[in-house]
Every structure is written in structure tokens, then in C-alpha cells.
Design a protein around this nucleic acid. Structure first.
Length: 309
DNA sequence: GCGACAG
DNA sequence: ATCTTGTCGC
């Protein structure tokens, strides 16, 4: 008999304490098979159902940041909400943290950047530099970049309500892309935003689509099924699980076409809500603001480092 | 064996 | 991801 499906519980199935954490971090001596096994554990511990404390509308951003004059200054808000000035509300809005990486190939270093946004405003910037111990291998990205991502999150003083990671979450061979990897280890709601598709199949062809358009991405044969055993050879097409969506965040009127974003649940978010969240976080550019700002911050830090040498 | 493959 | 100038088009 299959176990009853209770409401999403908040008891992490994977130890997230300091002792268990290293097991999911990069280790040059670990075999590919061992890393894949760890990903299966993470996928089993992940929750691909909504378990956030807010609606997508609560994180909506309508004004894109102006990057032409550099990044906007961080405006940390006073701690206690005591004496809330009528000027700036949103001191209770969810904190969305965008994360992105830059690299210094010649030094084998990764620069991880995080930007915390609340109520549409930058509240904090953080960065971390870590050595790269593992090469990039499709499907094992988190073992290369997960370390720097977790490092920068440690440096952040605010508590994230949502993580927006660069790369896939559930759209992954073992349904444990970097967004899922990081989300489960920190037990935080997370979504993955990728610029290209790792695996899975779109319901509809991704051609020139209008802004706001989206289509489900379903698991294909390259995606291992997780959780309740489902018939090995079920209908190949129809009821394959939806592991994410292609989302057209931007489109130009006439000229060149823009490729869609590939959005997928990381942890504690459903596939549908993940797209809604990303849609709410986009403010006119292809990338959602948290990612766009984290990307710019990573470049800024990289140039600073390159300059002082 | 061939093809596919986030950043 | 990174190495890199100009260039096509609104």
C-alpha cells in the first residue's frame, strides 16, 4: 500500500546540520556515482509543492533597476519595525535572494554573489570567493557551484524567504538541480531559472512566443522518476510529471527572437507557483530582477578582484 | 556506439 | 561560465 499523502510537513528528511552538510559539498575524491546517489537523496527530500508563507504577488517588482549608472545602493532597513515611518512600507515584505556566479578560470576560483531584495528594493549585497574543486559536468553542476552558493548565503545577514538560483531545479536528470540542492540543504523555498533546457520536453514547441507565454516541461526518458513508484512504462507522453515550465519573460516587437527562460521548482514550491514567482519578479528584462542584479554584482566583484592584481 | 547535456 | 569588437535593428 502506498503511504497516505499528508500535507507538506516542515520536517526536513535530510539532516541540514553542520555535520551532514559537507556530504553534499564538492569533494574531488568522490565518484560520479556517489554524487548521483546524493542527488537522489536530495530529490527524495525535496518538496515540489507549495510551502511558502506568501503569494507570488507579494514579491512583485514593477520597476527594473537602472544599471546604467552602476548598481543601486543597498538600503538596509532599521531592524525592529518599531516606529515604521509612513514613507517606506514593505518592511514586512518577503526577502527574495538572487544568486549568481562569475569565474576566474586562470585562478580556478568562483565568485558567488547574492542580492537580497525586499519590497522591490535592494536590502543587502553579499559575495564569497571559493576555490573550484570540480569541473563542470552536465547534471553535476551543484557539486561545482553549490559550495560558493552556500558560502555567500552564510555571509548574508538577512533571512531569505525565497532563493532564486541560476540553473535548474527539478528540471534535472535526477530531479535535483542546483536550486533543489541548495534549497533542501538550507530548507528554504527555492526556484531555478535557467537560460537553456537541460532535459525534459516542452508540451508545445518553443518558437516565437508573446511575453507572458509559458508551456509545461514534462519529464522524458532521461529524467529519473522519484517518490512513489509509478509504472515503469506508463504513457510516454500524456501523464509524465510536469517538472517545470518554459516561460517567455521578454520578447522584442520585430527583430531578433528571445529564447524563453526555463523555470523549475527547487524546494517547497510547485511548478506552477515557480513560474508565477518568476513572472512577478521580472520587470521588463529577460531575467528576473534578483538574478539580473546578482549577475551585475558578481561581475562588479570580479572586476574589482582582477583590478587589484 | 551515437546523441544530449544547467553554468 | 570565459575569451572579446563591432554591429544589426528598433
Amino acid at each position: 500500500m502506498s503511504p497516505p499523502e499528508g500535507p507538506p510537513s516542515r520536517t526536513p528528511s535530510v539532516d541540514t546540520d553542520a555535520l551532514a552538510r559537507p556530504a553534499f559539498l564538492p569533494d574531488p575524491d568522490r565518484s560520479r556515482g556517489e554524487m548521483e546517489s546524493l542527488q537522489r537523496e536530495l530529490a527524495a527530500a525535496a518538496t515540489f509543492a507549495d510551502d511558502l508563507g506568501f503569494d507570488p504577488g507579494a514579491v512583485a517588482i514593477d520597476e527594473p533597476a537602472d544599471l546604467s549608472t552602476g548598481l543601486p545602493p543597498a538600503r538596509p532597513e532599521p531592524l525592529g519595525d518599531i516606529e515604521t515611518p509612513d514613507g517606506d512600507a514593505d518592511s514586512d515584505a518577503p526577502v527574495v535572494v538572487g544568486i549568481d556566479q562569475a569565474f576566474r578560470p586562470e585562478r580556478d576560483e568562483a565568485i558567488s554573489a547574492a542580492v537580497a531584495i525586499r519590497g522591490g528594493r535592494v536590502v543587502e549585497y553579499a559575495e564569497a570567493v571559493t576555490p573550484l574543486s570540480i569541473p563542470y559536468i552536465p547534471g553535476l553542476l551543484a557539486f561545482r557551484e553549490g559550495e560558493p552558493v552556500l558560502a555567500v548565503l552564510e555571509d548574508l545577514s538577512v533571512t531569505p524567504d525565497l532563493l532564486v538560483c541560476d540553473g535548474s531545479g527539478r528540471i534535472h536528470f535526477r530531479q535535483a538541480g542546483i536550486a533543489t540542492h541548495v534549497g533542501v540543504i538550507r530548507d528554504l523555498p527555492s526556484v531555478g531559472v535557467a537560460k537553456s533546457l537541460l532535459c525534459g520536453e516542452p508540451d508545445e514547441p518553443v518558437g516565437e512566443r508573446p511575453e507572458g507565454w509559458s508551456t509545461p516541461i514534462r519529464a522524458d526518458d532521461s529524467v529519473e522518476r522519484v517518490g512513489g513508484g509509478e509504472p515503469p512504462n506508463a504513457d510516454p507522453d500524456a501523464d509524465s510529471p510536469v517538472i517545470g515550465h518554459a516561460y517567455q519573460s521578454r520578447q522584442y516587437p520585430n527583430s531578433r527572437r528571445v529564447n524563453p527562460l526555463y523555470v523549475s521548482p527547487g524546494h517547497r514550491v510547485s511548478a506552477g507557483t515557480a513560474v508565477d514567482l518568476v513572472a512577478a519578479l521580472c520587470a521588463g528584462y529577460k531575467l528576473p530582477e534578483p538574478t539580473r542584479l546578482a549577475d551585475a554584482h558578481a561581475d562588479r566583484v570580479k572586476r574589482r578582484l582582477d583590478a587589484e592584481e
